[in-house]
Design a protein around this nucleic acid. Structure first.
Lengths: 203, 203
DNA sequence: ACCTGAACACCGTTCAAGT
DNA sequence: ACCTGAACACCGTTCAAGT
């Protein structure tokens, strides 16, 4: 007998073996030893399936830090964790970005804790959603960037045609963690600092 | 006779009429009055087609501001323009985020100008790519958010279960431009200010 | 060189038929 | 209530055949 739990577990297996794009209804059915049409007794559409998967995946994000750490540290840890989770589940990004929160208790649990953290740090109620959304926008964009090839900005033959950018790319500071990680950390520190400045101006 | 220009123009027509998801090979072929297979004489894959479309769309982004405005103003204008363009062409986001820049002269032209602007503002060569990527990550994430429903954060029946977030949503400051725009502007100002602070610490 | 038309291997989804 | 098997309307893509 199929259950939501088994379906989600199998879906995650399929993703782990075949990647994001390998998660199809028939691949999932095969993994479960069942006909594709059988799935529609438990799930009304593929979008519905992805929401189930998402609910499971969201729970791997570390947001408990908002109950233990100061605001900036909590934001940093939450953002890093979110970005990691979405980088390994890029297919969920387009859904997560536009799904009404009512559809997912997992998301609401997260936001409940995050919102408390913002309030405890002295944020005005009216600004919190906007601040959260801006952080998440950066996180989701960065998660996509994390899947870009390491040499994404290598210019090849066209370096004489674009000398300035070419030289900037050649001189790009790197460290062991890789280009995307450096960009993420720089942007994250900037955003956190900037939000803190912005907040203090709001008083 | 089909030409790349005609194909791109027709693709943009199809998108305008049928939306992002309406751009299929057969829809495009029908619009051009040609068999679907004919397109493969001019384009090697759908991905290839989307790169052609992207090249056209990138040129609508305003990056000339880097030649006329101070750094912070130029970044602000460039980011706003980019976000608008990608919000109306969301299907290009997953490609743009991971495509090696060598594949697109339009992108390289943009980066050439942007890089010059950063250098003129005194940025170190080694930091520029990272700063650009962080801005673009925020822009792409925000472009996805711009397509979210306006009531994305309305909680409905579950407000007693998540009282804090519920109250935060209810108290969210809004103005005529809408939720996503406010979040974008707040994050953008934060990111710009934060990058400026971060840069001055690098000296 | 470029286009047609048929074919292929896939999608997600529906639905009558069985148990 | 749940599953099967056949069918449907779509994808992107290939390729022999025509001009």
């Amino acid at each position: 007998m199929l259950t939501p739990e088994k379906i989600v577990a199998a879906a995650l297996d399929v993703i782990e073996v075949s990647g994001d794009r390998g998660l199809t209804i028939s691949a999932l059915a095969k993994r479960l030893g069942v006909a594709p049409s059988a799935l529609y007794n438990h799930v009304s559409s593929k979008r519905d399936l992805l929401i189930l998967v998402q609910d499971d995946v969201i729970e791997r994000i570390d947001y408990g830090c908002f109950e233990t750490l100061p605001w900036a540290d909590a934001v940093r840890q939450w953002a890093r964790s979110s970005r990691d989770v979405f980088a390994t589940h890029g297919h969920l990004i387009p859904i997560y970005a536009v799904i009404p929160v009512t559809n997912s208790r997992a998301i609401l649990r997260m936001y409940e804790t995050v919102a408390k953290g913002f309030l405890a740090a002295g944020w005005h109620e009216g600004d919190i959603v906007h601040a959260i959304v801006s952080i998440e926008s950066f996180v989701l964009g960065s998660a996509m960037d994390a899947n870009a090839p390491e040499d994404m900005y290598d210019i090849g033959d066209l370096s004489t045609e674009f000398p300035v950018f070419s030289s900037v790319v050649a001189g790009t500071r790197e460290d062991a963690s890789g280009r995307a990680d450096v960009a993420f950390e720089i942007g994250l520190e900037g955003l956190i600092a900037g939000l803190e400045v912005w907040r203090s101006r709001q008083q």
